[in-house]
Design a binder for these strands. Structure first.
Lengths: 230, 230
DNA sequence: AGCCTATGCGACGATTGTGTAACAGTCGAA
DNA sequence: TTCGACTGTTACACAATCGTCGCATAGGCT
């Protein structure tokens, strides 16, 4: 996942009608969709877009789906990306071969769109090992991602969802200065159109939340550059 | 159990990417993990490490998972170790054969990591009834999985099946925030397609049931994230 | 100093997430 | 069969939170 927002899916399907329907539904479900209609483009887009998951048609001109799958599963940097293969019923015999090639799941046409979504989400959940278990600490601030709780000097703080994500981001690299654009990317999500000034406001809110029981301001403003923790 | 409280798990999976993700998560969940990428090593490590539980991939080079399972269940000294088999969807037909071979549970890929953890804990609890863990407790709520009964302040509560499963899930990790998707996975099951809002409704019902004799609301809503106990 | 830009902050409607009641469908027991 | 318990979905209301604006203030230049 881009860190913050929509999961990115690369949809590779040569049949335009099917691709469009699928893309529409995926977007309605909150995915950021990149489309390709052949295997060659797909290989390029994998590098450019760094998708979180790939939905791949089996039969395609030029480079077939299974070939794309095989190549991606051989590269160490792309191996981790889950791949869901789509296949027409007639090709069902090749099912085993598909999974052997490294596909993570397999959906036979005609499929239920709901089912495909559910499987896509399942894959994302499987691969993304949540930041669980790691308690972030900085000075007297303690953040537990698992329980979604933030403490300062052993007092529980109350923060909104965006403030929480913002704090997680800052605490993952204390001292590092994040530009407003970077924060928008990391906290809000990649392609979301929001004024960069909004970051200021939320930093302000985060500050207030962090100091709700007293204490000094742990957030540093770097004029002309951005913000950092400490 | 291992000496220091951590349950030891032997993880046998030949695909490095999957093994790594799983190991990471298991360790984050408090397991002591030993890894093997083939059946032969697995057999040796069973003796050397004396794991409390084994997670075993079905398909593997050399000695297959099912073969490892069969051998271990024949030896009197290893028969008692619970084995959870992992299998790709295409091999689902072999399910019966897997359980016949003696596997104690069976998880189909793609699985939710959370679910796998939950099942592993369930197996450990089953094998080790003497150890505290049979009866789940949190504050004044007591849940006895054996008798399927829930008490609060020594009064018996009446809950429906789904409410019960939901409460079990939450009580297995008090404080941890579960997203609606995770709860759907853990309580309803992975290939059931149900609206996430349904979770809200059942949480509401659980709340009412838990407070039917008075008392405060033990379920915490984490806006934008999910629910947790306490 | 004066000027210009970047930032802090309060206030405002708009949006989103959640709680809950109501409803219809399913299932099993009597 | 009829009954009752339970389910998943929907609709509505309310509250939390959001993004933007306006203006005040602070910082960095010449």
């Amino acid at each position: 996942m881009g860190k913050g927002g929509q999961p990115r899916v690369l949809l590779v399907e040569d049949e335009p009608a099917q691709r469009t329907v699928l893309a529409y539904n995926l977007e309605a479900e909150g995915f950021a969709v990149t489309q390709a209609d052949n295997g060659e483009d797909a290989m390029v887009l994998v590098d450019e877009e760094e998708p979180d998951i790939i939905i791949l048609d089996w039969m395609m001109p030029k480079v077939s789906g299974i070939e794309v799958c095989r190549r991606l599963k051989m590269r160490p940097d792309t191996r981790g990306i889950p791949i869901i293969m789509l296949s027409a019923r007639a090709e069902e015999v090749d099912r085993i071969r598909g999974l052997e090639t490294g596909a993570d799941d397999y959906v036979v046409k005609p499929y239920s769109v709901l089912e495909l979504m559910a499987r896509a989400r399942a894959q994302l959940r499987r691969v993304r090992p949540s930041t669980a278990g790691v308690v972030l600490e900085h000075e007297d601030i303690r953040l537990d991602p698992e329980s979604h709780r933030v403490y300062r000097a052993d007092k529980v703080l109350k923060l909104g969802p965006t403030e929480f994500k913002l704090l997680v981001t800052l605490m993952e690299r204390p001292g590092r200065v994040f530009s407003r654009e970077q924060l928008l990317d990391l906290v809000w999500g990649r392609d979301i159109y929001v004024d960069t000034r909004t970051v200021d406001v939320h930093v302000g809110r985060l500050r207030k939340s962090l100091m709700q029981h007293g204490g000094s301001d742990p957030v540093r403003t770097v004029r002309g550059a951005g913000y950092s923790l400490g």
